[in-house]
């Protein structure tokens, strides 16, 4: 995985988190942060996942991105899916 691409996806997810959860805007987001702990309910979590999928033009079933436990795992999963892995 290229570090740069991974960092770009992380930045994208972070901006989506800020968009869906205005209360945490500007706060540092770490890989091991859980979306739930940031105040996201299940509607928010799905929205964050979908905004990222749309920005990356990922055409996969959304259920393929279920089961991730924290922000880092979501970024890893998005990176893997966007590179056909």
């Amino acid at each position: 995985m290229t570090e740069q691409r991974h960092a770009e996806i992380f930045a994208l997810v972070r901006s989506n988190i800020y968009e869906v959860l205005p209360d945490v805007e500007g706060r540092e987001i770490k890989s091991d942060d859980r979306l739930t702990d940031l105040g996201a309910n299940s509607v928010d979590r799905a929205e964050i996942v979908m905004l990222a999928m749309e920005a990356l033009s990922l055409h996969i079933q959304r259920v393929e991105l279920s089961g991730v436990k924290n922000v880092g795992e979501l970024v890893d999963a998005l990176y893997a899916k966007s590179h056909g892995q």
Partner: peptide, 9 residues
């Protein structure tokens, strides 16, 4: 979460 994503799919 899986239910919500499956509903959307």
């Amino acid at each position: 979460d899986l239910g919500l994503l499956s509903y959307l799919d």
